[in-house]
C-alpha cells in the first residue's frame, strides 16, 4: 500500500516528495473539488510545472474535479484537456456528465472515481468501468471492507485514513451547514446527549487492515485547509503503514496502531487549540 497525498503548493509538494509519498493530487480554485478553503495551485501552468517535478521522481500526479457545478462545466473540461495534453497522469472525477464528456473527447486518461460517487457495489463499479474506463475507485467511507470485496476485485481501489479523515455521514451528500473543520455540525452534541454516529477508531483501523489484506493499493491523505494538519496526518499514515507491514495479524496491528494513534491525539489536540477546529 502506497500513500497518495493532496498538495496545493510547490512547498507542500517538495515536502511530501522528500518524505516519500508515491502519488500526488491537486485542485484549482476555480474548478469545484469539494474541499472548502483548501490550498490550490494558482493556475494550470503551475500544475504542469509540478507534474514535471513529480515525473522526474517517477511518481504519479492526478487532478481532482469531483464536485458537480454546471456553471463550471466548460472550464472544467478545458482544464482536463489542457492537463491531459501536457501529460498529467489522470483525473479524480465524480460527475457522470464529466465522464461522458471525457469519453466524447476520445481521450483515455487514468480515471479515478471519486469517493463522492457513492459506488457501494460491484454492479455499479462495473457500470463505471465498462462505460467510462474507470481504472480506480476511491471507496465510499460508509462501507466496510467485506462489503467492498467484490469492488476491490473489479478495480484498483484507494481508501482514506478514516480514523482521521472521514465524515460521519455520507460525504458528498451531506448538506448540513459545514464549512470546513471549524464548523462540522456532525461532531456537535444535540439535545444535550445526542451525537451523530460514526465508525469507532478501532473499527476504522480494523477496516484499514482488511483493505490492505484484500488488496487496496492506495492510502489517501486529503487536502486539508490547514497545511500543518496534512503533514501530521501524513506522518501518522506513514507510521501506521509500517505497523501494518510488520504486524503478524489483525490483532497485533490493532494493539500497536491503537496505542500509536492515541499518542498522535496529543498533537491533534494542540493543533485544534491553535487553529480552532473540532477534533
Amino acid at each position: 500500500m502506497n500513500i497518495q497525498v493532496g498538495v496545493g503548493s510547490f512547498k507542500e509538494l517538495e515536502f511530501f516528495l522528500k518524505e516519500g509519498a508515491r502519488e500526488f493530487y491537486c485542485g484549482l480554485s476555480y474548478i469545484p473539488s469539494h474541499v472548502e478553503g483548501t490550498s490550490n495551485f494558482k493556475n494550470i501552468y503551475e500544475i504542469i510545472k509540478a507534474d514535471r517535478i513529480i515525473k522526474k521522481e517517477k511518481k504519479n500526479f492526478f487532478f481532482t474535479a469531483n464536485e458537480i457545478d454546471s456553471s463550471a462545466f466548460k472550464k472544467t473540461i478545458d482544464a482536463i484537456l489542457k492537463l491531459h495534453e501536457n501529460g498529467i497522469d489522470g483525473f479524480i472525477i465524480k460527475d457522470l456528465s464529466l465522464l461522458e464528456e471525457i469519453k466524447n473527447k476520445k481521450i483515455r486518461p487514468f480515471l479515478i472515481l471519486s469517493t463522492l460517487s457513492m459506488c457501494l457495489n460491484s454492479k455499479t463499479a462495473l457500470f463505471y468501468k465498462k462505460n467510462y474506463r474507470i481504472k480506480r475507485i476511491a471507496l465510499c467511507e460508509q462501507i466496510t471492507p467485506e462489503e467492498s470485496k467484490k469492488i476491490i476485485e473489479i478495480a484498483e481501489t484507494e481508501v482514506f485514513l478514516k480514523h482521521r479523515e472521514s465524515c460521519r455521514n455520507f460525504n458528498g451528500l451531506c448538506f448540513l451547514s459545514c464549512h470546513g473543520p471549524k464548523t462540522t455540525p456532525c461532531l456537535k452534541t444535540y439535545n444535550e446527549t445526542f451525537t451523530m454516529p460514526g465508525f469507532s477508531r478501532e473499527e476504522n483501523l480494523k477496516h484499514l487492515y482488511r483493505y490492505y489484506k484484500y488488496g487496496t493499493k492506495i492510502l489517501k491523505i486529503g487536502r486539508s485547509p490547514l497545511g500543518e494538519l496534512s503533514r501530521v496526518i501524513f506522518f501518522e499514515a506513514k507510521n501506521i503503514l509500517n505497523i501494518l507491514k510488520n504486524s503478524k495479524n489483525e490483532e497485533e496491528f490493532l494493539k500497536h496502531s491503537l496505542k500509536f494513534t492515541k499518542e498522535y491525539d496529543k498533537v491533534y489536540k494542540k493543533l485544534s487549540v491553535k487553529y480552532g477546529f473540532i477534533c
Partner: peptide, 10 residues
Amino acid sequence: EYLSMSRICP
C-alpha cells in the same frame, strides 16, 4: 427536506 444520511444508524 433531506440534509444528510448515514449507514451507521443513529
